[in-house]
Simulated scan of single mutants.
Amino acid sequence: MRLPRWFLCNAAALLLTLAPIGCMAAPVSGYKVVAKYPHSTESYTEGFFFLNGLFYEGTGRNGHSSLMAIQPETGKPIQQVDLPAKYFGEGIVDWGPNIYEWTWQSHICFVYDRFSLRQIKTFTYSGEGWGMTHTPTELVTSDGTATLRFRNPETFAETRHLVVRDGKEMINELNELEYVKGEIYANIWHSDRIARISPKDGQVLGWIDLEGILPEGQKVDQESVLNGIAYDAIHDRLFVTGKQWPAIFEIKLVPKTK
């Protein structure tokens, strides 16, 4: 996640990344790539969603953070607003006519009019900002731990939280989020896996193993990790990308091959 911090990965996250996939309690799916779309290798992806035919992307790093509405066919932004250099942009989420974009350690969430990307207000919060998505009634946020926090969309105040586990194993480093068919999908920082999480109790319902989807030779550096999940609910399409990746992949879930 964020500026190069791979040396700060804790033991739990490292074990999750390195452990054989068969060791996880929840079932594992593989993937099939059905389409590819261009993606700027300048974009340090922190937030990602699909709405009304466009990708919306929030990018990070101080001095490079922005919110963009992107044409899928070209990978070019048709609208963009840049954050002041002191802010490190993080997850984004749509709510009604607005888009929220929060920040890593500045405790500021910007609220924009979705149609003009004009900033209309801000929220404050405690802790770090990582990923964001929403259920039909609540915002859902991650902060780099195993905890997901549910928030009132009107006030950004926390209403409840849950700890994510696969069986008894706590799943740390929850990153970019997406709400898909009643489940919360979560990237795990520095992992090629996406967790499918129950919003009721935090249990991992399944894993998506995306190992090999982008060849190592196409990654900029160690921080070019999988981080970006978007879902087109109208056409039942699932998209994934990563930090400074050259492509967005539309995928279908398939049985995991051994």
Rank of each mutant, 00 (worst) to 15 (best):
Gly63Asp: 00
Ala247Asp: 09
Asn52Lys: 02
Gly91Arg: 04
Cys109Val: 13
Arg193Met: 09
Trp245Gly: 13
Leu226Val: 09
Ile194Thr: 03
Glu46Cys: 07
Thr59Gly: 05
Ser224Arg: 14
Tyr31Met: 08
Glu138Ile: 02
Tyr56Val: 02
Tyr179Met: 11
Leu83Thr: 09
Lys256His: 07
Leu148Glu: 10
Asn187Glu: 01
Ala233Leu: 00
Ala230Leu: 10
Glu138Pro: 06
Glu138His: 11
Gly206Asn: 03
Ile21Trp: 01
Gly127Ser: 13
Val163Thr: 10
Ile213Leu: 07
Thr141Leu: 04
Thr41Arg: 08
Thr145Ala: 13
Ala26Cys: 11
Thr124Leu: 01
Tyr231Thr: 04
Pro246Val: 03
Thr103Pro: 15
Phe123Val: 01
Ile108Val: 11
Gly242Leu: 05
Arg193Gly: 07
Ile251Ser: 02
Leu177Asn: 07
Pro84Asp: 11
Ala13Pro: 15
Ile99Pro: 01
Gly47Asp: 11
Val204Glu: 07
Gly22His: 09
Thr141Cys: 15
Glu57Met: 10
Thr147Gln: 15
Thr135Gly: 14
Tyr37Thr: 00
Thr155His: 14
Ala157Tyr: 07
Ile208Gly: 02
Phe115Trp: 14
Arg114Pro: 03
Tyr179Cys: 00
Tyr37Trp: 10
Tyr112Leu: 07
Ile197Gly: 04
Pro215Leu: 10
Gly167His: 14
Val163Tyr: 03
Gln203Lys: 10
Gln80Phe: 00
Gln80Trp: 04
Ser116Glu: 09
Trp189Ser: 14
Leu16Arg: 09
Lys219Leu: 08
Lys243Thr: 09
Leu54Ser: 05
Met24Ala: 10
Ser40Trp: 13
His134Pro: 05
Glu57Trp: 03
Ile78Ser: 15
Ser198Cys: 12
Gly228Thr: 06
Met1Trp: 12
Leu8Arg: 12
Gly22Asn: 12
Arg5Lys: 06
Ile171Trp: 15
Ser191Leu: 15
Lys121Ile: 00
Arg61Thr: 03
Gly75Val: 05
Arg165Pro: 13
Thr17Pro: 01
Asp201Trp: 03
Glu128Arg: 09
Gly212Ser: 13
Ala35Asp: 10
Ile208Cys: 06
Met1Gly: 06
Ala11Glu: 11
Trp95Arg: 01
